[in-house]
Write a protein that binds this DNA or RNA. Structure first.
Length: 445
RNA sequence: UCGAGGAUAGCUCAAUGGUGGAGCAUUCGGCUGUUAACCGAAGGGUUGGGGGUUCGAGUCCCCCUCCUCGAGCCA
């Protein structure tokens, strides 16, 4: 008997096949049982008729519990009521294991209950669909990079110091060498790679020990960071645009079934085509002033609302939202005030208070999915910035070397994978975008 | 870290300071086209922990623990 997967079942109509999987749900009606099977590729309903199977098979079905592992054999037929749906007329059943009472029922559950059982929650159709979409996104990112001449350049996870110095780092003991920190970005190393290989990208886990308890943050997440020699900020934005269009259009094409099953309105994603709006920070501030969105500052006795929005301040969630709602595509906000950004960003030659950085804000309130910049390539200016930011200059000696030996203009950006997944899937919370999320208050399972 | 809300059956939630309930899940019974199937029955509780007010506390007050949402930080 041929073993088939549920997602290819339509090609086996009228044939007897074997499915290896699990019991997803079961309903019965007197002398008929409707078991629903899953096998990791999809769901299919079985039909068991008491008059047409051995008594043992009938009795075995009555013993089955949710998530019991089973191998079933039967005839593939069209569903009598539903279009494009198939059923299996069960003839035989082999029980691999009777599952203990399964905690996740077809009814509603709270997020904490499900998170405690993440290892089981992953079996639900919605979670499985999200992870298939994640897989497609990762694959398309890698293919875009490969097809466009980027070299995969893996950067270390144990690092001796902070990349930007601002974010909190996870510390570990590293033999006799003192503390090592888990990487919060591969960028500085990728810059060395870009000078060596032209165009590179790093794609790996990153760690931020920030106590951020929002729907957009996890402490361990995957980041893809391309870095390109002889790219200025505008080349960088051209790349971001081309890259995002490719990835989104491809996931729409290859994951239409999964996107539909999680109820994603794909019309908003279909719109993600070049060109994307590019606005300067200054223009973004104009939008905020027109909409009368204030800067909210915390003071000793509550908060202070400052309007009009002052030039030079960084944006918070309400500001990003107000800017994004003017457009129906990702928005690239570029040329930021220097004090709001990292030390390695190159200053705008036209205005030393401005850096050549770019943030990409996703539509529908998903916030910053990409942050990038042209890097400071001048030896003296870079040293000066490191000192200004109060960073230990010895630790950056190898990084500074890149400006001593054949320095060139170069740029890059960082893409947060889980934020991309959240946006594509329209998730309420980033915790569903990764198999086992790590948050400040959760490290299990 | 700050602000707001919450913790009651295995799960999701009700309960005016006065005998703690329902749906689902589980067990048993019924039903030949069910779709979070349906119908009937049964079992299931130290109301997160500690203290206080009261004749009487799931309910009011204080402390603690944990969770959720929002803010900040960022991808």
């Amino acid at each position: 008997m041929e073993r088939v997967y549920i997602n290819t079942i339509s090609g086996h109509e009228g044939k007897e096949v074997t499915l290896k999987g699990w019991l997803y749900n079961i309903r019965s009606s007197g002398k008929l049982i409707f078991p629903e099977f899953r096998d990791g590729t999809g769901l299919i309903q079985g039909v068991v008729s008491k008059n047409e199977v051995d008594e043992k098979v009938w009795n075995d079905f009555n013993d089955l519990t949710q998530e019991s592992s089973v191998i079933v054999t039967g005839l593939v037929t069209k569903h009598p009521k539903k279009e494009d749906t198939y059923e299996i007329q069960v003839k035989n059943l082999e029980i691999i294991q009777i599952a203990e009472p399964y905690p996740i029922t077809p009814k509603e559950h709270g997020v904490d209950f499900l998170s405690d059982r993440r290892h089981l929650w992953l079996r639900s159709q919605r979670q499985a669909a999200i992870l298939r979409i994640r897989n497609e996104l990762v694959q398309s990112i890698r293919e875009y990079m490969y097809n466009n001449g980027f070299i995969l350049f893996d950067t270390p996870i144990f690092t001796p110091n902070a990349c930007e110095g601002t974010s909190t780092l996870f510390a570990t003991d590293y033999f006799d060498l003192g503390k090592a920190y888990l990487s919060q970005s591969g960028q500085l190393y990728a810059e060395a790679g870009a000078i060596a290989l032209g165009k590179v990208y790093t794609f790996g886990p990153t760690f931020r020990a920030e106590n951020s308890m929002t729907r957009r943050h996890i402490t361990e997440f995957w980041m893809m960071e391309p870095e390109m020699a002889y790219y200025d900020i505008d080349d960088n934005m051209d790349l971001i645009e081309d890259f995002l269009e490719y990835v989104i259009q491809r996931v729409l094409k290859n994951c239409s079934k999964e996107l539909k099953s999680i109820g994603r309105d794909t019309s908003k994603l279909e719109n993600v085509l070049k060109p994307f709006p590019r606005i300067t920070y200054e223009e973004a501030v104009e939008i905020l002033r027109e909409k009368d969105i204030p800067l909210i500052k915390k003071t000793e006795n509550g908060e202070e609302h400052i309007r009009p929005f002052p030039f030079g301040e960084d944006f918070g969630a309400p500001h990003e939202e107000a800017i994004v709602e003017n457009f129906n595509k990702p928005v690239m906000v570029h040329r930021w005030p220097a004090e709001a950004k990292a030390f390695y960003m190159k200053r705008d030659p036209k205005d030393p208070k401005i850096v050549l950085g770019v943030d990409v804000l996703a539509p529908e309130g998903f916030g910053e999915i990409i942050g990038g910049s042209q890097r400071e390539d001048n030896l003296e200016l870079l040293k000066q910035r490191i000192i200004e930011h109060d960073l230990p200059i010895e630790a950056f000696s190898w990084y500074i070397d890149l400006r001593r030996f054949g320095s060139v203009p170069h740029s890059g950006f960082g893409l947060g994978l889980e934020r991309l997944v959240s946006w594509v899937c329209n998730l309420d919370h980033i915790r569903e975008a990764i198999p086992f999320p790590r948050r400040p208050n959760r490290i299990t399972p």
